[in-house]
Amino acid sequence: MSELPQPEFDKDKFLYPTSRYHGNFTPQNLAFNANLQEFAQRVSYICGLETGGKLPPQEAYNEIKALWKQLKKSREMLLDYEPNPPDETAGD
């Protein structure tokens, strides 16, 4: 009897699941949402490692703090960006 082929397992989708974005769509919002989901996933892993005794509390804190700074910078670049208004004198 022959075995049926097994579907290919995508470990990245398993380890780093992402949810669909349902908010107000802009490329910036979508990019920030992806960054936010990655932040949450990585913080979850760090917390699990710290809880399991594999990572010292101070190191876990430092890693989460560094991730927070990256997320904050991402927010500033993606969401706090205000494009320059069109030059009203152009074309005169």
Results as ranks from 00 to 15, higher is better:
L55D: 00
L55N: 00
L55P: 01
P56E: 03
P56Q: 05
P56K: 01
P57G: 10
P57F: 01
P57R: 01
P57W: 00
P57D: 02
P57S: 08
Q58S: 11
Q58R: 04
Q58G: 03
Q58T: 00
E59C: 05
E59Y: 02
A60M: 00
A60Y: 00
A60D: 00
A60T: 00
A60F: 00
Y61L: 02
Y61K: 01
Y61N: 03
Y61R: 01
Y61S: 02
N62V: 00
N62P: 01
N62T: 02
N62D: 09
N62I: 00
E63I: 03
E63L: 09
E63Y: 02
E63F: 04
I64V: 04
I64D: 00
I64P: 00
I64S: 02
K65G: 10
K65C: 12
K65R: 11
A66G: 15
A66Q: 10
A66C: 06
A66W: 01
L67C: 14
L67V: 06
L67H: 02
L67E: 04
W68G: 11
W68V: 06
W68D: 09
W68A: 13
W68S: 14
W68C: 15
W68K: 12
K69V: 13
K69P: 04
K69W: 06
K69N: 15
K69S: 06
K69Q: 10
Q70Y: 12
Q70I: 04
Q70M: 09
Q70E: 14
Q70D: 13
Q70V: 04
L71Y: 03
L71I: 11
L71H: 03
L71S: 09
L71G: 09
L71P: 08
K72Y: 09
K72I: 06
K72L: 08
K73D: 03
K73Y: 02
K73R: 05
K73S: 12
K73F: 05
K73M: 05
S74Y: 03
S74M: 03
S74E: 12
S74N: 05
R75K: 14
R75M: 07
R75N: 15
R75P: 12
R75T: 04
R75A: 08
R75Y: 08
E76Q: 15
E76P: 09
E76H: 06
E76Y: 08
M77C: 11
M77I: 04
L78P: 13
L78H: 05
L78F: 04
L78N: 05
L78E: 07
L78Y: 08
L78W: 08
L79P: 06
L79I: 07
L79C: 10
L79A: 11
L79M: 13
L79G: 08
D80W: 06
D80E: 14
D80N: 14
D80Y: 10
D80H: 05
D80K: 10
D80M: 12
D80S: 15
D80R: 14
Y81P: 03
Y81H: 12
Y81W: 11
Y81L: 10
Y81D: 14
E82T: 07
E82R: 12
E82Y: 15
E82D: 13
E82G: 09
E82H: 07
P83A: 07
P83R: 13
P83V: 07
P83Q: 12
P83D: 05
P83T: 05
P83S: 14
N84H: 15
N84C: 13
P85Q: 08
P85W: 14
P85A: 15
P85E: 10
P85I: 15
P85S: 13
P85L: 13
P85T: 05
